[in-house]
Write a protein that binds this DNA or RNA. Structure first.
Lengths: 240, 240
DNA sequence: CGCTCATTTGACGCATGTCAACGCGCGTGG
DNA sequence: CCACGCGCGTTGACATGCGTCAAATGAGCG
């Protein structure tokens, strides 16, 4: 499963300054000197689609910052049941939430790049970076809000509300990062979407079909979605 | 709904020192001097069962620390649908997770006492309390782990697995706080349990009955549960 | 162009929700 | 002290939405 063996470890040399998530990641609050100290303990690593960055239950030796690509956070149950508890995009931190072990696995969906920090070294450094500690606290509070929203979705929404909510969130995210808020690329497959929304792939597929037939969305291939009626989509997220 | 009007505001006078959650709450890491400064901005308030401490969507002016009693964190959907995203017990912080507004309501289940801090004053103080900021970061990370576990439960577990998981967690909590880990008091009603587990009250009731008939648990009244076979209960939490 | 895997579509059954009635405990008032 | 009503929980009958299983279609890629 976990193919840690053949990952490339890229030596760092003033890379933070040119980092693609320099402006949005947790380290964005650091000054040049602090950033240099952080960089001194960090490594850049790459993973291919399907590879695990870490596995649920492992000793959480590292904390990661995703700089390129998309990953899924996965929890497993006997019987092959799977729940995706979140998708991470560039700028997101992974591996902070633990109980003495990683509480979920992190798997690359696309080719990814991460910034890897030895956990204890990062936590030690954090004690000298008050601004970054505050930043992390805010990030954690935000993630908690998102998790609560997802609990509402999983516990009380119908399949069509779930899918609409999922698409609507991606649109907002897309809008915030400067891209068109009416077009989104789904880098994850239907089965990832199903395991994120607590549905089967068949139900996800049927729901996409229904949204297409109702002309709320247009599908160009399986991974590109155009939202024709954003207001209607928003209505569907909390249908009566 | 929200009956803020008739709550009692109790003046503080060195109360932190005798606080019942002094050893477990986030403020436990503070020294005497720091505690005095924290206490200076705090108020103690009490609420009766059913009263809201704050409501979803409100301006998050305060952060709270629960010192006595039990509260539920609630999110609502049109159609009367409700999801309880968590229960809080003495020592828990409330109101940290926000997006510029409270992301859920907090309602007293039992009579409660809280310690109320003006949000910005607490955040300002936090900048001078590095140890408490670290503590809060750890607490937030823990809550995130719990939220992920709850997503797994809501998205992928069967009713009996959900109820068993719920009871099993309460037993562990009970064990950690020094009480018997085989007996628990359910302060919340069946409808709170249902809305926490993403089920209907009927299904919760039937599932309790099944666990009783299978002699996994014994019910003494509706609110006191004795676990007869903890290993069996644990097995049921992830049945194949 | 053809293979493979992902996705879609269809048929079917069951688990869980819905609706309704009943029971029980508790507080209130006669 | 008992009768009554109300809220909460339980139980039963029924319906249906979503999961399961199976087959067809389509997209991506060598």
């Amino acid at each position: 499963m976990n193919q840690h063996s053949n990952v490339r470890i890229i030596p760092r040399a003033g890379l933070c300054e040119t980092c693609k998530v320099r402006e949005i990641a947790a380290c964005s609050v650091l000054d040049k000197d602090e950033l240099a100290r952080l960089e001194a303990v960090s490594k850049t690593r790459t993973f291919e689609p399907g590879q695990a960055i870490f596995d649920e239950g492992e000793d959480p030796r590292f904390i990661y910052n995703l700089t390129e690509g998309t990953i899924r956070l996965v929890k497993l149950l006997p019987n092959g049941r799977r729940q995706i508890v979140g998708f991470n995009f560039p700028g997101d931190m992974m591996g902070l939430a633990t109980h003495g072990f990683y509480t979920c696995s992190a798997e690359a969906i696309t080719p990814i790049k991460v910034c890897q920090f030895p956990r204890q070294q990062l936590l030690d450094l954090l004690e000298t970076f008050p601004s970054m500690k505050t930043r992390l606290l805010n990030i954690a509070a935000d993630e908690l809000s998102e998790a609560q929203e997802q609990m509402l979705l999983l516990g009380r929404k119908s399949p069509i509300e779930k899918v609409a909510s999922f698409l609507y969130r991606l649109c907002q995210e897309s809008g915030r990062t400067g891209d068109s808020e009416n077009e989104i690329d789904l880098v994850m497959g239907r089965s990832d979407i199903a395991d994120y929304l607590g549905l089967t792939i068949e139900t996800v597929s049927r729901t996409f079909t229904k949204l297409r037939n109702d002309e709320v969305i247009t599908l160009e291939g399986n991974h590109h979605v155009i939202v024709n009626d954003m207001d209607h989509l928003e209505d569907i997220t909390e249908e009566v």
